[in-house]
Simulated assay, not measured.
Amino acid sequence: MLSPSPNSTNKAFKRVALVGKFQADGIEERLQDLAKLVTGLGCEVFLEAATAQHLGFTEFPIKTAEDFAGAIDLVVVLGGDGTMLGIGRQLAGKNVPLVGINMGRLGYMTDIPIQSVQTILPQIIAGEYEADTRTLLDAVVLRKDKEITRALALNDVVVNRSGISGMVELAVRVNGSFMYNQRSDGLIVSTPTGSTAYALSAGGPILHPRVAGILLVPIAPHSLSNRPIVLPEDSVTVIEVIDGREVIVNFDMQSQTDLQSGDKIEVRQSNKTITFLHPCSHSDYKTLREKLHWNEYPSTF
């Protein structure tokens, strides 16, 4: 969606929350500059509670992510894709859009360079942006048919071995139909967003963010015939742990649950989404080209 450009006295977003990667060098000064910029645009600025707590900021009102819905119009994330993953999962389904500003390395989700924020962020706050809706995965871990964990994932749900233990054996069913037994280092269930993360390093394809599908990617499978596959968006995938020591399931690599033989992980597309806002000049292909160092055609192409 491309919003019309309003005049400078109008704002598409009036209440703006700032989220920062508080472990990053120089984050305090960067956030102060960002708050000054947003305040100068006539917006009310809030700090996300964990960011404020870790950095000791007290000059702005504080809100937890759980309280953003209905109280915050826009969230500006300063950091990397990991920071965006964390806050994105918390805001799923809350109808609060996010803007990502990277502090050095271009991200797939944090795609606005810090050097360009003085120009681009005022345009977005004025209403000049492209909206990009992303799906999430809803995963449930079942032990003897009882739910022991439920989590959302914006990138992926990964069942794998931990430490130096051997291969795991997994049985995979999709919509109740048996797909295969697989011996491997693990299995990745990925959204299109996550197709450029762990799934890519494991040999999976890149899915455009607007592709409606769920990606299954084996991790170092014992049989080379176990290949990545893209499933329909309404698929329900059940992964059963048949055998293996120290097996875990990760959700966006930010939380995990230890598994036992017989445990099942049921994964489906969540009914919750999040929305990223990009500058009007945003191109997914440009981001891929820069991140993956693809060769460029001459400008006359």
Rank of each mutant, 00 (worst) to 15 (best):
G20F: 02
E128F: 05
M167G: 02
F178T: 02
Q123V: 05
V238M: 01
F46V: 09
Y180P: 01
N295H: 11
E266F: 10
V172F: 02
L224Q: 12
T196Q: 07
S184I: 06
D111M: 00
S195D: 04
F22K: 08
D81Y: 03
L170D: 10
G70Q: 02
H222C: 07
Y108N: 00
V45D: 04
G88A: 14
T149Y: 15
V141D: 04
L288R: 03
V140Q: 07
L200E: 07
Q260S: 14
I214D: 04
D185R: 09
L91Y: 00
G213K: 11
R183S: 07
K14H: 11
P6H: 14
A71M: 09
S116F: 04
F13T: 10
A35C: 00
I274Q: 02
A220N: 12
E29F: 05
A50F: 00
L98V: 11
R227D: 05
P113M: 11
T287N: 10
R15K: 04
S299V: 12
D258P: 10
Q269P: 08
V236F: 12
F46L: 14
F251P: 04
E59F: 04
P279D: 05
A171Y: 02
D243S: 15
L207M: 13
S184C: 11
V16N: 05
P218S: 01
A151C: 09
P232M: 02
F301I: 06
T135Q: 15
Q123M: 12
T300D: 15
R245S: 09
M103C: 13
T275G: 05
V172M: 12
L37P: 02
L187W: 11
F301A: 12
N7W: 15
S255R: 15
